[in-house]
């Protein structure tokens, strides 16, 4: 069982149903908790507590950032690696870190701390006011792709929402498949397991692999990609506690 404040009601019931014993992981922190928001004189920091220790997850950026902050009113699944060095915003930094907002509303997750002298957010590419730069809507030029290509769309835990990065990946796959007149475009969906630091396992819901694959295939076809086939793996990918976020995915293999 999850043994943390803030795990209550429906979410705890859900977790209890899917957890099974496992092995703890060194240097890795995988846990479910309420996020904590700390204001600063610039942008807010997002933190989370686990077994009496506070961890720094990241700061508010914009939609193009790799870090998508957690949300109050929701628990968050944190999967990150402890980084040696000074604390940030009072928390031990985790890098890389994957953030998954759990879907069910949890009103207990509502901690917003005021700014305090001496606690500063690291520099942000975008402040809390209007941007000092224009939001980039076009990818930087890169080497043209050729041959068989595999594109991978990653997801938050138990989610099929296509985030900004996935949106760009699908757009790139579409452009490539159309440019080369692909002979086949194979979409494969997966769901996965997360091994928590407690040793318990958290498994994504049944049917999610199919739904993820269907969504991507629908988009590709809708954007005019021909020859799209799809499959999905109904059984969840195993969790190792280190690379679990990379297995919550859809792959798109484009063959000339």
């Amino acid at each position: 069982m999850i043994r943390r404040a803030g795990c209550a009601g429906l979410v705890c019931g859900f977790l209890a149903a899917v957890l099974a014993p496992g092995q703890p992981l060194a240097g890795q922190r995988n846990f479910v908790s309420c996020p904590i928001v700390r204001d600063t004189k610039t942008v807010p920091c997002f933190l989370a507590e686990y077994e009496g220790e506070l961890y720094f997850l990241g700061i508010q950026q914009d939609i193009t950032s790799d870090f998508h902050p957690p949300q109050l009113k929701h628990q968050v699944l944190v999967e990150g690696r402890v980084v040696e060095g000074p604390r940030i915003c009072g928390g031990i930094p985790l890098r890389p870190v994957s953030i998954s907002v759990l879907k069910e509303v949890n009103l207990a997750c509502n901690t917003l701390l005021p700014a305090e002298p001496g606690i500063e957010a690291p520099p942000a590419s975008r402040g809390a006011g209007p941007s000092s730069r224009r939001l980039e809507t076009v990818s930087a030029p890169r080497e043209p792709l050729s041959g068989r290509q595999e594109f991978t769309v990653l997801y938050s835990f138990n989610d099929d929402y296509l985030e900004y990065a996935g949106n760009r990946t699908v757009t790139e796959a579409t452009a490539y498949a159309k440019r080369i007149g692909a002979s086949s475009v194979k979409v494969s969906g997966y769901r996965a397991t997360t091994l928590l630091s407690s040793g318990d396992r958290l498994v994504e819901k049944a049917g999610l692999a199919e739904k993820r694959a269907q969504n991507i295939a629908t988009i590709l076809r809708g954007l005019g990609v021909a020859g799209v086939t799809l499959d999905w793996k109904s059984e969840p990918e195993p969790g190792d506690g280190q690379t679990d976020p990379s297995r919550r995915r859809v792959t798109v293999v484009v063959t000339p």
Binding site: V37, D39, V43, P44, F46, Q60, D62, I63, H68, P69, P70, Q71, L72, K73, H74, V101, L112, A128, G129, P130, E163, Y164
Partner: peptide
């Protein structure tokens, strides 16, 4: 707004 990867709350304008 808050639910599309920007975080909740979002300190903006």
């Amino acid at each position: 707004i808050n639910s599309i990867g920007l975080g909740n709350p979002l300190k903006r304008t």
